[in-house]
Design a protein around this nucleic acid. Sequence first.
RNA 1: CGGGAUGUAGCGUAGCCCGGUUAUCGCGCCUGGUUUGGGACCAGGAGGUCGCAAGUUCGAAUCUUGCCAUCCCGACCA
Length: 492
Amino acid sequence: MSKEITSRALDYSQWYNDLVIKSELADYSAVRGCMVIKPYGYALWENMRDQLDKMFKETGHVNAYFPLLVPKSLFEAEEKNAEGFAKECAVVTHYRLKADPNRKGKLMVDPEAKLEEELVIRPTSEAIIWNTYKTWVQSYRDLPILINQWANVVRWEMRTRLFLRTAEFLWQEGHTAHATKDEAVEETIRMVNVYATFVENYMAVPVIIGVKSESERFAGAEDTYCIEALMQDGKALQAGTSHFLGQNFAKAFEVQYLNKENKQEYVWATSWGVSTRLIGALIMAHSDDEGLILPPRIAPLQVVIVPIYKGEESKEAIDKKANELVKALKAKGIRVKYDDSDHSRPGYKFAAYELKGVPVRLALGLRDLDQNVVEMARRDTKEKTTVSLDGLDTRIEILLEEIQQNLYQRALQFRNENIRKADTWDEFLDILDNKAGFISAHWDGTADTEEKIKDETKATIRCIPLDSAEEAGICILTGKPSSRRVLFARAY
RNA sequence: CGGGAUGUAGCGUAGCCCGGUUAUCGCGCCUGGUUUGGGACCAGGAGGUCGCAAGUUCGAAUCUUGCCAUCCCGACCA
């Protein structure tokens, strides 16, 4: 394990890459734009996934699985959606390889095995799912359909970044069908709130819930709700989206049901998703120059115990106490590891677990055993205290919760300090260039103005916050009247 | 995909301009020993298609061309 991580101040992007690689969350692979998620990173994803899955089930959803490959004719059925994703689709055109007659030992695509119809590798699954729902829905009694799928999708991105934007990524996508518009809108909002709750309570990352402007909307949606988080470098990151799809997909795929009055109606749809991108958000929201800082509720490892011994006989005494501790902590459901490996010394282990973001570290030596104490260090503040071994399991349980809260509060304070109001164009530019963060400003509501602002500043409208109050003002660019502020930022 | 940079052992690198013995050094790795309260030390050892493929040449890490990958800046995007 290498010692050096580029500091955030020196090069934020490099810091992020160093962190992902050196903390062993993920690695580059032999495939362009695709990463290997390593066991530590996958354990983190599993914890996130399991909690989300629980929350989806608590809100009445069930899991299912649909095919990776989507026939092109289905994919193109909903025009806006198809157009929106067309530029980044990987396409399967053949189903067989054969030995290359010109190059010994090499294979070539068999031209005889060309598919009648190309298959699109799903960049999102609306098409294949709605084509399926068509056969499931006849009556209002068949509704709602509340299905989620955990899957991988492929989007052929020009430029990729570990976790934030990879060509293949893991996500979940919920696809629901409803009898009424109100019910679908309610579902859309329910799920964006589930995301906000998860990201804030488990990842300890505060978010702003809002609605996307028309030009930032998901292709094929009537409305896109989102959660926006702020990273330490002052850039925003879209952390999750929930779409009200109206009847667009129902009409494209002819999904109709017979209502109580024996009349045919199109169903109303939603879709919502979060991806492994959340891991990128987690890293950039909390971590420091020494490594990751993981919130206890989703950390793969919550506590690590490092023995400090001199000679075999002292190690035995320490082992005994450490194993008791492990047992007590595990009984409380705490994820703990006793690292008594002999190939690295305590100082090395301290640094290594800091790099990996383990929330609590205990150092246990003979000196401590004599006094019935242990050295307890917390990753978030780097604070070290000597505490009694009596009742330590309960104390740690409380500390983990305290760390969880502290991380959230710290991130919340940073986020709040970095939402600034701009009432003039000059103010807007000044904040963007000198302070970054979110800018709350008036906008005349036109896509044209939004575009101009983006072209000139790279700042986009992140969302129209759901809690934004009516307020008369004038657009920072055009001076035209506006009825509420929206949030701008440069974003990932 | 456009502009810039880079690619030598798991990681970081010297050598390349000006082609010529066995490719440099550090970390890491293996063996043995001593160690262990913030990234240990000694001794011995293993590890290389010099990103890949062609070409020039008696000879290529070094020169030429093509390709691939990564990073940075754009455009695109979760």
